[in-house]
């Protein structure tokens, strides 16, 4: 049984911000956010979201909160991460948010800040003795698997259906959890999913699925992609092989390639309801700040927070893409 979970950002945020005083009249608190990396070219958590998007989400979320947010870029560098933590200690921040990527350095940073009596909120990767905010990869995978199974039951009953799990190698625990969730969600489909490893290269994902389709002519294929890049590669493979009538796909992450603005190239759009990409499971890394900052603020104010808070994942489809990610260029 996992630790108690808090699944709605609004509860804590509302509790903190519903006081009669206006936000700009409340005492200011300094919260540090140490990002794994701010690099706009580095993707995080096995999704298409970049470190820059995570940082921007924190900046946006901080605008109406009674706190001063100090940013640190750990640059996926152990020494830099430790130096940043020491700088935050010297600055006497009221709380420290650590987006971890290295267990050993995260533990060391947790120890240093603990000695300085600065509360730490771990993001993505747990730090001993501190609360954690993280994606729920098992739940996200299950959402995708269930969506594919539902589609199969509704549209391909009585046909031979082959489920495929396509994407990067699952060397990291979180992708293992994602895969386990997908397999659990696909339980109603009688065939065990086939794992196609792309090596993290969308071109290889494309080639791998083409090969699979060639070996399964006349069969229907459910593709659970481990990320959006693999989902789009799968679509390209189905297009190129003339098998769009035999393939449906669900991605993971739901980055801008899936939900961009009305005038951007994207996959999920109310005007694109016939796509074989049924949807993508949202990880909301671009909105982490809205979930995490209320927790950090509570910790800075020495209020209790749940030991584990998970992202509330959701399947984004053409039917709800504009609701969850409303495009600003509405015309």
């Amino acid at each position: 049984m996992p630790a108690p979970l808090l699944r709605r950002r609004s509860l804590l945020a509302a509790a903190l911000l519903s006081t009669p005083a206006r936000a700009d009249e409340m005492p200011r608190t300094t919260v540090a956010f140490a990002n794994a990396t701010d690099d706009p070219g580095t993707r995080l958590e096995g999704t298409g979201f970049t470190g820059a998007e995570v940082r921007n989400g924190f900046a946006l979320a901080a605008r109406r909160m009674p706190l001063d947010l100090v940013f640190y870029d750990n640059m996926l560098d152990r020494a830099k991460a430790l130096a940043n933590a020491r700088e935050a200690i010297a600055r006497r921040v009221d709380a420290y948010i650590l987006f971890g990527w290295d267990a050993a350095v995260s533990a060391e940073i947790g120890r240093l800040l603990g000695e300085a009596a600065i509360p730490v909120l771990a993001v993505g990767q747990s730090v001993p003795g501190t609360p954690l905010y993280a994606a729920d990869n098992e739940a996200a995978g299950r959402i995708a698997g269930e969506a594919l199974a539902r589609y199969s039951a509704a549209n391909w009953a009585g046909r031979t259906v082959m489920p495929v799990i396509l994407g990067p190698p699952a060397q990291r625990t979180r992708l293992d959890e994602r895969i386990a969730g997908i397999a659990a969600g696909l339980q109603p489909v009688p065939v065990t999913p086939v794992r196609l490893d792309s090596g993290g290269d969308p071109l290889k994902a494309d080639a791998a699925l083409r090969g699979f389709l060639a070996g399964h002519s006349g069969q229907k294929v459910l593709v659970a992609a481990l990320d959006d890049a693999s989902a789009l590669a799968a679509k390209a493979a189905a297009d190129a092989t003339g098998r769009t009538g035999d393939v449906v796909i669900v991605g993971q992450g739901c980055d801008r390639t899936m939900h961009g603005n009305a005038s951007e190239r994207k996959e999920l759009d109310p005007a694109n309801r016939g796509s074989i990409v049924l949807g993508s499971v949202a990880f909301f890394l671009d909105r982490y700040g809205y979930d995490v900052l209320p927790l950090a603020l509570a910790m800075a104010m020495r209020q209790p927070v749940p030991p584990v808070t998970r992202t509330q994942h959701k399947l984004i489809t053409p039917a709800n893409a504009f609701v969850v990610y409303p495009p600003i260029d509405i015309n």
């Binding site: 989400g57 605008r63 109406r64 809205y290 969850v324 409303p326 600003i328 509405i330």
Partner: peptide, 11 residues
């Protein structure tokens, strides 16, 4: 203000 104050609320 754009981006708006709430990420899933527009205009």
């Amino acid at each position: 203000v754009i981006p708006g104050e709430e990420p899933d609320v527009i205009f």
